[in-house]
Design a protein around this nucleic acid. Sequence first.
DNA 1: GTGAAAGCGCTAACAC
DNA 2: GTGTTAGCGCTTTCAC
Lengths: 334, 334
Amino acid sequence: VASIIDVARLAKVSPATVSRVLNGTAGVSAERAERVRAAVEKLQYQPFSPARALRKQLTDVWAVIVADVENPFFTSVVRGIEDGAQEFGRRVLLCNSDEDLAKEAGYIDVAVAERVGGVVISVASTKQSDLTPFLSQGIPVVAIDRRPIGTKVDSVLVDNRLASKQATEHLIEGGGELVACITGPKRISTANERLRGYRDGLEKAGRAYDESLVLREDFRQAGGHEAVQQLFAGKKHPDALFVANNLMTLGALAAIREAGLRVPEDVSVVGFDGIDAAGLARIGLTTVAQPREQLAAAGIRLLLERIEAGPEAPPRTVLLEPKLVVRSSTRREP
Amino acid sequence: VASIIDVARLAKVSPATVSRVLNGTAGVSAERAERVRAAVEKLQYQPFSPARALRKQLTDVWAVIVADVENPFFTSVVRGIEDGAQEFGRRVLLCNSDEDLAKEAGYIDVAVAERVGGVVISVASTKQSDLTPFLSQGIPVVAIDRRPIGTKVDSVLVDNRLASKQATEHLIEGGGELVACITGPKRISTANERLRGYRDGLEKAGRAYDESLVLREDFRQAGGHEAVQQLFAGKKHPDALFVANNLMTLGALAAIREAGLRVPEDVSVVGFDGIDAAGLARIGLTTVAQPREQLAAAGIRLLLERIEAGPEAPPRTVLLEPKLVVRSSTRREP
DNA sequence: GTGAAAGCGCTAACAC
DNA sequence: GTGTTAGCGCTTTCAC
């Protein structure tokens, strides 16, 4: 609990000099600097961040708000952001909104109260998430993965629509007669865009859109499981399936297996985002691979540029291209 | 960027009154309180945390330092801690040491500099991780999952040794003749304890300990993969395998599959900790299930009790019992 | 190159 | 109940 004054006293210099040595803000004679360093060492002095933050009206912490920390996609992106932040001497306050608007709003307040240096957020709801607190306080924000509407913020998004269209085409080309789609809730932009791409794919192939083959569930493993059960309980038995989320894909595959069906012989499956565990299964999963590292990297880049440019610069959007990786969970051209 | 003074001015009261209304620290007449709330709303006032922290010499943030954010075991525990922290109005600064001592030391410094209200840490190295900065600054710490030696801190640990012994016995009872073990680096206590339990299991069954059947690799997927390749490249081909980590188990199963071997017919496998993806594979994984929720809950409990009791109270250790869950990746009694 | 001093926004001790 | 005031630890003018 030593303060800068204790250090100054011990080193027989003024607090200002200690500050200068520690921050390298101005020249200090070698001899005195050495005394300061010795005193710091001796007292185990650690500058008290809140005092500095109060003085500078700014924290060297960034907040990362994600919709689900337990989703490997997000942890992977978070990890990338954290690594990047570290390079710039920034710490990361990780907040898990848990797909819950109220929790998200709470964390947004926290980030504002802390006057964090920047925010990277993957919103819980495209329409309802409210980013205006950041904008009104002049805190730089970057939205990633999910599109927030109603606020003009820098964004790093993925071309979900195109990739989903390709995934659907791939299923049809492989002989899929009845292609089903499992996607997420309406409040999540990625869920909608992926559904949109699925429709594009059907259209391109001249197939009719059949509502009974489309299910919306939570972006969780249980959701995928449930959806598959419902699909196969119905009259139409799809022979091809596009699952628009990584966790759901796990659930869907498990349910397919429980139903005694084979992949890809009975049902072709395309998932979304990589799942490490896919290698574990006997089947290699055909999937739309997300550019996780690029998401993190572009997020950091936009954030830094925003910090640099100030709030007046026009918002920018980076659109990344995911890629369909064909493995063995889908049938090839007949 | 409104401050408490702006609010006071607008509400025609003193800053102290505003503070009292916001914190409920003392009675304020209903009328004035209402004026204050209106002013807060009008100005979009958010108290500036660093100023409060400076005044109170304490942050309402907890730090959670984990060894690997990308490991589902840790994210699950982190999530539990975060949920618990929220209940007590605490935020969580998540730090990923990435199994790296230097990175960990950096985060420990940050946590000290922020004077966080408490720390939950899963150390990168049993022997080398240095928790003394917390103790010397009087910051409450709880170690979870991995045992830190050299410092007397509250700990929530799992009885790795016993569970591993049971896992090994199970493999032997199922007809395992040559039981191999893949574990982690020496610096990680859980790796050592699990190995120790494996030896206990062999001993109990009167089997000799064979060093060539024991491999240490990183606690990562690639490590498990590599280890299996090495094992089967050797002269002795084990017919039973205990993998002492969740990610490694994924790699090990993949490598076994690549080698054209069947589980459990050719190789019985027991993993450590649940892997959601196990349900996805054709095989249900027999595994030592970790009490993730209990780890988080006990961690929070010890932290709160430590905060309550102060630094002088004797450190406590909670030992949790993991449970062997038998599924279909192991052969049953012949 | 160095020190004295002011002040960041908040809370708590003190007066009334 | 309420306002006045001091001070938390730091950085940054401003003098010298």
